[in-house]
Amino acid sequence: MTLRQYLRRAWPLYAMIVPGIVFVLLFRYYPMYGIVIAFQDFSPAKGFLHSPWVGWENFEFLFSLPEFGRVFRNTLIIAVAKIVADQVGAIILALLLNEARLMLFRRTIQTMIYLPYFLSWIVLGGILLDILAPHGILNQAIASLGGERQLFLGSNNWFRGTVIVSGFWKNVGFSTIIYLAALTAINPVLHEASAIDGAGRFRRIWHITLPGIRPTMVLLAALSLGDVLEAGFEQILTLYSPAVYRTGDIIDTHVYRVGLVSAQHSLAGAVGLFKSFISFFLIALSYYLADRFAGYRIL
């Protein structure tokens, strides 16, 4: 088949791709030109073209902020813990739900754990503030069991844990659904065969279910590497207070406060670029890992 023949046959397919490519160019690539403000002392009146250039000054300022090390560490710790908790929790929940026999029970639980995903952090923040208050339901329970009341949101010992657990509570339902979908793809014949061979429930999970979803596990874990600097801006902004800056302040919330003092567009641009830069490498790495261990490729 010559190229000419091929094009004659395939041109409608290419034509259909065009709007998508135009969209991506227009709304994903063209705005990237705005990255220049990270290297400028940007002023909206002067625009991208006429704002003075300042080289690396915005980045130098960002890295020289006295708290930069602290917020970077907090961001990494919280984000990594969230990724791990989310993945492991989702797998366990998916396995448990998968073993449940009663469809009604399974559906109900699934809906319940999925529900918080749809609430905004502003709403959940208010709820958490009530639940975790010194005389809130959780502390009342602790006190009635003879324990000491804890300041879950106000103490540096607890804050990270509270953020990670509440983030897990909100998001785990969503990740679970992906695993449940992967579980349905496992051929039931394998389960039946091993049951006949005398394998118990745990044996079957270990030798059939888990290997069956391994590609999905590797893929999701690898792809979540790109989120390693996303510790959850809205969540922390809703829950934190100056008392827990030491353990709870992340890059996003810190820059948010720095930017509030005056409209530091360029600084915000520099932060965005810095995070994108790190994420870019991590995504490239995760793509390599996904290919290597799960055989996942785009091309």
Binding site: A243, Y245, R257, V261, Q264
Partner: peptide, 15 residues
């Protein structure tokens, strides 16, 4: 200097 260091100083104070 407030633009540059003000937020960090305010954090330090609040904390």
């Amino acid at each position: 200097t407030m633009e540059r260091a003000g937020a960090s100083l305010a954090d330090l104070e609040a904390e």
